[in-house]
Design a protein around this nucleic acid. Structure first.
Length: 876
RNA sequence: GCGGACGUGGCGGAAUCGGUAGACGCAGCAGACUUAAAAUCUGCCUCUCGCUUAGAGAGUGGGGGUUCAAGUCCCCCCGUCCGCACCA
């Protein structure tokens, strides 16, 4: 008996799996398949605890499904384009490519000791031209299909990273990576028409029943569908004079287009308002210095949360007015207002103060009429109208229409429909659905990304690079000594002849947003080696969709939405047949750790401190007391990180994996503790000791099964089979912490067998138990599983063996213990045969001493017996 | 403001077709082994009262309700966390 030597053991089995190609996905497309994928890592250079957790969870699922008989695809790749590589190039003078590939090698070396069941033959790196040439082709197909377009537009400019950000990458008005407030800039940008699929993306969410509700709701909110109407208002000047030419030009048919979700409230409208960036505003501002000043004021206001919260609703009254569509000769004043966004709807609104809080605030400030048009059912219309005329709170509830001519008496819902049909018959508008979702801007002014395969010709304009000239590869010789995009100033890379007319032209120097690569990599894994096309049709049809996609919640709207869009776009371009890339999604929690601060308020790392005899935390260098802060996500800035590689080297992969799976449910945040990893290591040793102890009476390999067992060994035998059934269910449901608890219970149960009363039975049950355990722990602790199996005299690999089946005869107990309650309070428990008659249960309960005591001198009103569950005696 | 999740011992968490609350582990305490320590093993470990035996009572954020029976279902409140946010 010796301490479990994880170093030798883990290396040995990793080599064995490798030599037998245990994890290579089979090309047999007849077998039932299971595609297990963790979100692929960015090659930062070092793995972190989040990776350890992510890949451990995924590996449990992959190994379990493989044992269940599925043909499992479990690949690994690298999300290899991105800014850190360029920043490293700027800081250290290395080439981004060298930096990236070096990091990939380093991280692969750190992943391998984890013992993951990955098919490394399918490894891909997205920065390789073999990969990105296919996405250049995809982009050109999107362009042909009208799913990609170029337009000049206001963009989110990150002044620190010198590049544009997508809306999804702006958090609280700041860049998602830099944290610097974004600026507005007008640039020519490539967009992907994700809005074309807004409805489909929303609809599709309903089918994703193996996605967390939370993620579905987040995507639903992000797409932000609102049903309403487009209303066209005739515009006139207040004095009745003709409109100037430039205003007319900015208005189609001299009419102002407004989007509303409340066409039912049109009779309560008291003003219209334009965005400061509306074309009409721009036209008016040309001749109006005061308006120009107002617009500049609006632009100065930040887009941050606090700024919006505290910002006053301000308006600038123009000399224009609009005609009410339903009331003859009635006009509404036209304002420019700071709260109207050009990005949403039509950039213009009508205001109905009585039924919208923001409109009411605005009306009170500028002294505009407040006319109630919806009243709660029980209210008197006249009284309610009078009340609303003075109210400071808008009424947004349901009710019946009042003061609204032909809409009077209708419900809000009916009034919406009626108002829209009136608008349509008058030609003044129509029903319309708006989405919050914007098209995806994919141009980035950076080097380390996939070049956009476009040539700008002075005569022909935008010319796609011919398919035969793909890939457009990045130039190797680039200079990072100046800020900005080095390919834009490369001496010759961008100068080419126009493929159409042969004239001197320039290449597009922008590269794709790196979310482009991660939007289709899961499909590339199905056939990573095909060169002439992105994927083999038969392979993607077989493997996709991904059955288990595992990663952090932070991609709920970014990567996961883009991938869903991309899959639809690829479907429509004939690349594949499915619409949804990920049938099952699992979002894991973060790995957290306590935080520590030294007396001078600096963050300090866990390995700079120790615990003194009194249990106080002190700093190593000067024994100063330190303050312990709350547990937070591991991050370099807070110095509360623990290096997984160090942990694997000290405790082994199995112990590290076990700790990742113990205690906390995988979807919840977990806390890293030293005692936790110690506990996992102790369990492994305990199990190994139990197995290898000389006085553990394990039966010989082919010992026959005894005819009968002692009560103890019978109990243990039942425990074994209940554990098989329990863990199988737990793994299906991602209840990994419970599966670990069950393993420990079974271990405890086996450790009570000493072979003293029933040497033959105990010995047989122990062997059986360890053989089963070797299989049950294999998804979580694969090396230990193999080692136990081999120790028991077997030659083959657990990794290639089927999952054990629970024997039904051991799942049933013939005696059960149930509780006896008096008035719903448990008084005692009794033993009963399974499925005992009610009368029998009642008489056993009544005979119990504790029940007798509780019932003394009391009236029994009734007795409730639920077979195999409970006896409840009601006294009065 | 809108949307969502969560709240159980000192801690992580079990238990949700309503039916024995606290599985499993961590920390802690006591003991065994040891010259000693580590490791290991055994026992205790929700709270209160109690002759510390027997037992009794309370208890799953707070309050109310449904029920023979509520951590679990319903209503109201409190708290924590997350997402979105001038979206017309």
């Amino acid at each position: 008996m010796s301490r479990y030597n994880f170093k030798d053991v883990e290396q040995k089995w990793q080599k064995a799996w490798d030599e037998k190609n245990c994890f290579q996905a089979s090309e047999d497309f007849e077998k039932p398949k299971c595609y297990v994928l963790e979100m692929f890592p960015y090659p930062s250079g070092r793995i972190h605890m989040g990776h350890l957790r992510n890949y451990t969870i995924g590996d449990v699922i992959a190994r379990f499904k493989r044992a269940m008989g599925f043909n499992v695809l479990h690949p690994m790749g690298w999300d290899a384009f991105g800014l850190p590589a360029e920043n490293a190039a700027i800081a250290a003078g290395t080439h981004p490519g060298d930096w990236t590939y070096k990091n990939i090698d380093a991280m692969r070396d750190q992943f391998k000791p984890m013992g993951l069941s990955i098919d490394w033959n399918r490894e891909i790196a997205t920065c390789s031209p073999d990969y990105y040439k296919h996405e250049q082709k995809m982009f050109l197909d999107f362009l042909r299909a009208g799913l990609a377009y170029r337009k000049e537009s206001w963009v989110n400019w990150d002044p620190q990273e010198h590049t544009v950000l997508a809306n999804e990458q702006v958090i609280d008005g700041k860049g998602w990576r830099s944290g610097v407030p974004v600026e507005r800039r007008k640039l020519n940008q490539w967009f992907l028409r994700i809005t074309h699929y807004a409805e489909d993306l929303l609809e599709g969410l309903k089918e994703l029943d193996r996605w967390p509700e939370k993620v579905r709701i987040m995507q639903e909110n992000w797409i932000g569908r609102s049903q309403g109407a487009k209303v066209l208002f005739h515009v006139a000047s207040s004095e009745g004079t003709d409109l100037s030419a430039d205003i007319k030009d900015s208005l189609p048919e001299s009419r102002l287009e407004v989007f509303t979700t409340r066409p039912d409230t049109l009779f309560g409208a008291s003003f219209c308002a334009l965005s400061p960036h509306h074309p009409v505003t721009t036209a008016l501002a040309k001749h109006d210095p005061a308006l120009r000043e107002f617009i500049a004021d609006c632009d100065r206001l930040g887009t941050s949360e606090e700024a919006i919260e505290t910002a006053e609703k301000r308006g600038y009254k123009t000399y224009l007015r609009v005609a009410h569509p339903f009331i003859k000769d009635a006009f509404l004043p036209l304002y420019v207002a700071n709260f109207v966004l050009m990005e949403y709807g039509t950039g213009a609104i009508f205001g109905c103060p009585a039924h919208d809080q923001r409109d009411l605030d605005f009306a009170r400030k500028y002294d505009l009429p407040v006319q109630a048009v919806v009243a709660p059912k029980e209210e008197d219309p006249a009284a309610f109208t009078a009340h609303m005329a003075e109210s400071k709170e808008a009424f947004t509830g349901d009710g019946l229409l009042i003061n609204s001519d032909f809409l009077n008496g209708l419900t809000v819902q009916e009034a919406k429909i009626t108002a829209i049909s009136h608008l349509e018959s008058q030609g003044d508008g129509e029903g319309r659905i708006e989405y919050r979702l914007r098209d995806w801007g994919v141009s980035r002014q950076r080097y380390w990304g996939c070049p956009i395969p476009i040539i700008h010709c002075p005569d022909c304009g935008i010319v796609p690079v011919p398919d035969s000239d793909l890939p457009v590869t990045l130039p190797e010789d680039v200079d990072f000594s100046e800020p900005g995009n080095p390919i834009a100033r490369h001496p010759h890379w961008k100068y080419v002849k126009c493929p159409k007319c042969g004239k001197d032209s320039e290449r597009e120097t922008d590269t794709f947003d790196t979310f482009f690569e991660s939007s289709w990599y899961f499909a590339r894994f199905c056939s990573p080696k095909v060169e002439d096309k992105a994927f083999d049709a038969q392979a993607v049809d077989y493997w996709l969709p991904v059955d288990h996609y595992i990663g952090g919640i932070e991609h709920a709207v970014l990567h996961l939405l883009y991938s869903r869009f991309f899959t639809r776009a690829l479907r429509d371009c004939g690349y594949l047949k499915i619409s949804e890339p990920f049938a099952g999604l699992f979002t894991q929690g973060m790995v957290c750790h306590e935080t520590y601060k030294s007396p001078d308020g600096q963050w300090i790392s866990p390995d700079e401190i120790y615990r003194d005899d009194a249990g106080q935390w002190r700093q190593n260098k000067d024994d100063a007391l330190i303050s312990v802060g709350r547990s937070e996500k591991m991050s370099k800035s807070k110095k509360n990180v623990v290096d997984p590689t160090y942990i694997i080297e000290s405790y082994g992969a199995d112990a590290s994996r076990l700790f990742m799976l113990s205690d906390s449910p995988p979807e919840r945040d977990m806390e890293w503790t030293d005692s936790g990893i110690d506990g996992a290591w102790r369990y492994i040793n305990r199990l190994w000791r139990l197995l290898s102890e000389p006085n553990t009476p394990i039966a010989e390999k082919n010992a026959p099964k005894p005819e009968s067992f002692s009560e103890n060994s019978e109990t243990a035998l039942k425990a074994i089979h209940k554990t098989i059934a329990g863990i199988s269910e737990d793994l299906e449901k991602y209840h990994l912490n419970r599966a670990v608890a069950r393993l420990r219970e079974l271990t405890n149960s086996l450790s009570s067998l000493h072979g003293k009363e029933d040497p033959v039975g105990d010995g047989w049950v122990l062997r059986h138990g360890f053989e089963i355990i070797s299989h049950l722990i294999a998804p979580m602790m694969p090396h230990l599983g193999e080692e136990i199996w081999t120790y028991l005299g077997h030659q083959d690999l657990v990794a290639q063996r089927p999952w054990p089946q629970a024997d039904a005869q051991y799942l049933i107990e013939d005696t059960i213990e149930i509780a006896v309650q008096v008035n719903g309070k448990k008084k005692t428990t009794i033993q009963l045969p399974l499925d005992a008659q009610k009368e029998h249960a009642e008489s056993v309960a009544m005979a119990d001493a504790a029940i007798q005591r509780a019932l003394k001198d009391k009236n029994i009103r009734k007795v409730i017996v639920v077979p195999n569950r409970i006896v409840n005696i009601v006294i009065g």
